[in-house]
Design a protein around this nucleic acid. Structure first.
Lengths: 204, 204, 204, 204
DNA sequence: ACCTAAGCGAGACGGTACGTCCGGTCTTCCG
DNA sequence: CGGAAGACCGGACGTACCGTCTCGCTTAGGT
């Protein structure tokens, strides 16, 4: 197998990298993913196409990193409070609060278009999908795992429940409604999901 | 606004339509969605490109109809038993059975590649997404709604539960694991989902 | 060799034929030859494409016949005086008069565009070229042959001169200037040509 | 008016340019002008279509330049003897010699097909026509003007004759017979033309 | 007066080429 | 030597026409 003689990352232009991220996000937001082109990103960033191909393998790669970078920036700006599900002792309340915040984020157009675009690419392009899940989705889900384990310690969740599966009861429905537009998403909706998930739909 | 003078559908070539469906599905299965081209479909179907553009607006449109057609054919071939969730009186068993069958279908490569491709396109292209949901997804989900309502009548599900939301507790997690590859899917997994959904994760 | 089962000319629609001629000439005049299409002619004439292909082999054929027809109509309208070079006894004057009239015709846009188009097609398409020459050009040139022969009888032209070649001395220069735009054409110019042709450019 | 941001000619690929010329001439010679396509030229030259459209505006433009280039090459190869009409003092002999050589060239298929094609295009497309005349035809004709002027100096041609018109007496007939196939072309024919042109067709 | 076979308008069809766009590579020159 | 610029080969796009092929529908004669 022939491999490119990997470029020297220490000499990489930070300015170009940032310009490319900005251009990629802007173009996706303005024109949508399919009408965003590598050529367009290069032109908008004032960068040669080769500079993009030198450091990334495809449009999807660029956007993925740009989006990760955006996430980091936002996290740094907003402070650290979001890096965990709160633990007030009231599991239902904690989950509802986080899901309400998630809804607000999902509806923020700065996130929506690139996130949706990456998710779409990830469905079809396994490599992008894996990275998307590993770097973006799974870390978020792990926070729920942590909170559920803590709830198991206090007896708020049965000990024989698998937290990684349990979290899907309320996270996946929201994800599907948002991604596939299978239904409206609202604070009431996620509240209901939490209630159903905690106590089931069968008579108690 | 300029509109094309809609072609005369009565003179449409049935042979071409079927050949196009077959070619589209075959190419998507072989090469994947992004490497499937309108030109390729036309060539494989032995059809002029214009014949595709005359009746469909895009690659996604063609594939959507081809997939719908495939579904109808399968349904016709397989008989009608699949058009409803079974109702043996044991809700948990019925749901588990249907979800196990769904898993088998999701892993059938004849379905997997085009379904995934259409779903991906639907994330990003709202029009395709709406049609995908309306024509394919929602009719399936409605079958669960029916079964849950029947369960409410027998008291197996609480009367105050919204069936359209309740079904997402077990359907959406499976959908997400399959679409986004966020985890393995197995019969055990869906059995667990049904148990959690029916009785909740909190202590009873 | 397979031959089409020649259509029955007796049942041919005269109305369609005339409409096609008119449409062809109009389109060539408006849009130029290369942008005139069989489809366009058919649409403009309110005729099916097959009706054109049934009776003609190509766009050039249609235009050629349309132009011949136009010529006949003009001739019929204008009377018969133009079907011969006048013979007043003064050869130089007769030739100059005819050439002046020819210039006026060449500059009439109703003739110019289709004539030029047909000539162009004829350069490259031998079949069209032959027909163009045989049916249009040669009959015109024959009139000069007749006049020159008459001049030979009166001694105004040497007996050993070949009239078919001699006429080219004044006709071909005009034709070339008009067709290839190699120079301006005017009454003075053709007068000069006649003088040079009659008496040569060498000292007498 | 929107204008393309003119490409940088200094970075143009000489190899591609030559390959395109060669392919264009070969295809025109083999298949004729109307069956020569930009796509075909690109494929034969091993070049992207865009490389053609970047530097030329149309098939005719390409062929015109290819033909000019061919002319230059031939001239460079053959030496400079052809860049003037010979001047032995015997005007009739000089003209006859040049016209005989011209006939040989006109019948050389390497010249015939592209020249005829360009001429045809030039009849209908004024821009091509102007360039064809300016760059190819007029420089050739100018050589006759020079020779005729020299003849006027020696008294072999009358001083009041316009050489630019006079040359058409023998050049245009040949041109027309060749282009429009209005008659056979031979050495005898051009000899006759020169005789008629010099001394006229009227009795001396 | 009816039948039937043709021409006819219409336009869908399998194709070819158009001129444009963009992907990914390669080359040139600048800092 | 990284980067900007952009020419290059390739290949798909969506459109325009080509010439062929049905469709019904007139519209004749021939019976």
């Amino acid at each position: 197998m022939v491999k490119k003689p990997a470029p020297d990352a220490t000499r990489r232009s930070e300015k170009s990298r940032r310009a490319i991220y900005a251009a990629a996000l802007a173009l996706v937001a303005e024109a949508g993913y399919p009408r965003t082109t590598v050529e367009g990103i290069a032109a908008r960033a004032g960068v040669g196409k080769q500079t993009i191909y030198r450091w990334w393998g495809s449009k999807a790669d660029v956007l993925l990193e740009a989006f990760l970078d955006l996430g980091e920036q936002m996290a740094r700006t907003a402070g650290q409070e979001a890096s965990a599900v709160p633990d007030t002792g009231d599991l239902a309340a904690d989950l509802k609060a986080v899901l309400r915040a998630t809804i607000d984020e999902l509806l923020d157009p700065r996130f929506e278009v690139p996130a949706r675009s990456l998710a779409a690419e990830g469905l079809v392009n396994e490599q992008v999908g894996r990275e998307f899940v590993t770097k973006l989705l799974e870390p978020q889900l792990q926070l729920y795992v942590d909170r559920l384990r803590s709830a198991q310690a206090t007896g708020a969740v049965r000990a024989d429940v698998d937290p990684r599966i349990a979290l899907e009861l309320f996270v996946s429905p929201l994800a599907q409604r948002w991604l596939q537009r299978t239904g409206p998403i609202s604070h009431d909706y996620t509240d209901t999901l939490v209630d159903y998930a905690l106590h089931g739909i069968a008579p108690r």
